[in-house]
Design a protein around this nucleic acid. Structure first.
Length: 439
DNA sequence: TCTGGGGTCCTAGGACCC
DNA sequence: TCTGGGGTCCTAGGACCC
């Protein structure tokens, strides 16, 4: 078999006899298994070997015992209970998740500085420069897994391959608690029989379209011409999928650049549309988003509001301002006008289920002061109906925001804020979860 | 009885400029 | 004298990822 596949127990004598041929495979993809659920089982031994889910209204993570019943992340809580009567829901220790994730990443850094953290529970490592110190990539992968298991107590799956995409596919196939090394000489044999869903960028919609075209495996996808894929999925998606299925991936392991947007959202349940609800929710969201922008010393020109109605139908309205903003009240005002416009255009909708505010078109904050005044008359025509931020007002607000930020840094979020910045009962999501998701 | 929060990237049409 | 093409920016919606 071209693919070397070890489960859990890897002994180094086996390794040294197999690893020399895989010299080109120096990328590791490391992925913690059922991360939140594994942490909960680690913290509370009575939960081990039992089907558990982290979350409530929606499943954030399911243990492998729960997955055997079909319980999956993202699933509504009631559906999960339907599938598994014994399912235990456990409250999320979100701060602990962050701590455990950080500890795992620090183990990675003991082997190589080339670590690209993709999310709280997942990272790419380039170990090309580490082989002289620590041995072949497969040995490094085994050592990383062992240390994470012994020192932290969490199961980690690792894929080792020549490219990021292959490494990621390998780690998915290795789960749970496994290690797969893909020999560069036998990559096609590894990829061809796998389902298309394992390719990055193939979600439910793309999978369905490809199935309808009779394409089920990565091998079949690779045989399909790029023109056909483009006509099926669009130019960019078709080209990307064509490349990945043909095993072409030139991405390197690197630390991510600055973020391109900052946003926040609040699910509301089903609520009647009222001015108070809109004002209160946008106040809360605007406060969060603007605060995070200022903390990152960023400001943004484009404000986008999303309103989701019943049956998950959602509508967005956005507006690009002549200058970048990061002041709380200005963001709230712009968001409020956008939300009103979205709701007015959908008056037959009785209830809303979610509001979201996001700022994009970001730039470093220092340019804010330079580009004043804001009350220029050459606004794009489509924004004519929006009230424009005025320079002197903006400068004053910016000063107030900075003072609020400083007080919060010292005494916590709740210490001070605008009257509108508190979300009443509707917010069932703990603050720690939002902080966790911000990462 | 439809379910969280945080993101990225792509598309298509229209406005506008040269 | 109302015809061409290319590029950029903006808006709305959608697919996808963790």
């Amino acid at each position: 078999m071209a693919v070397v596949h070890w489960k859990t127990n890897v002994c180094s004598t086996t390794l040294s006899s197999v690893t020399p041929p895989v010299s080109g495979a120096t990328i590791l993809h490391a992925d913690l298994d059922a991360f939140y659920a594994s942490v909960e089982q680690l913290l509370d031994p009575s939960l081990r070997d039992r089907p558990i889910a982290v979350g409530g209204g929606v499943v954030l993570a399911a243990s492998y015992e729960a997955r055997r019943f079909g319980v999956r992340a993202g699933m509504p809580g009631w559906r999960a209970r339907q599938l598994c009567g014994d399912l235990r829901f456990v409250g999320g220790h979100f701060r602990r998740y962050q701590q455990f994730g950080d500890e795992v990443v620090s183990v990675f850094h003991d082997f190589t500085p080339r670590v690209e953290r993709v999310s709280i529970d997942e990272a790419f490592l380039d170990v090309a420069g580490a082989v002289h110190l620590f041995g072949a990539p497969a040995e490094i992968a085994a050592a990383v897994r062992q240390r994470v298991r012994e020192e932290i107590g969490l199961p980690l799956s690792v894929g080792v391959a020549r490219t990021k995409h292959l490494a990621k596919v390998a780690s998915q196939v290795a789960k749970p608690d496994g290690l797969i090394v893909v020999d560069p000489a036998h990559e096609r044999a590894f990829l061809d029989p796998l389902p298309i869903r394992l390719i990055r960028g193939v979600g439910p919609t793309t999978e369905r379209r490809l199935h309808e075209a009779g394409i089920h495996t990565i091998g079949q996808l690779a045989e399909t011409g790029s023109p056909i894929l483009r006509s099926l999925l669009g130019d960019a998606a078709g080209a990307k999928l064509g490349a990945l299925s043909a095993n072409i991936d030139t991405r390197i392991v690197q630390t991510p650049g600055p973020s391109k947007s900052v946003g926040s959202q609040a699910a509301l349940g089903r609520r009647q549309v009222t001015r108070e609800l809109i004002r209160e929710t946008l106040g809360y969201l605007g406060d969060r988003v603007a605060g995070r922008l200022r903390k990152a010393h960023m400001a943004g020109r484009t404000v986008t509001v999303r309103v989701r109605f019943a049956q998950l139908r959602s509508v967005t309205r956005s507006s690009t301002l002549p200058v970048a903003i990061s002041t709380t009240l200005t963001l709230i005002e712009v968001a409020d006008q956008l939300a009103r416009s979205a709701i007015a255009d959908n008056q037959w909708e009785q209830e809303i289920t979610l509001l979201a505010v996001s700022v994009s078109n970001l730039c470093p904050e220092h340019s804010l002061q330079l580009e004043l005044p804001l009350d220029r008359t050459d606004l794009p025509r489509t924004q004519g109906h929006l009230r424009r931020p005025r320079a002197e007002v903006e400068v004053g607000r910016w000063g107030v925001d900075r003072s609020v930020d400083a007080i919060r840094d010292k005494f916590g979020r709740a210490a001070v804020g605008y009257a509108t910045s508190v979300l009443s009962g509707a917010d069932r999501v703990p603050e720690e979860f939002r902080e966790l998701a911000e990462r």
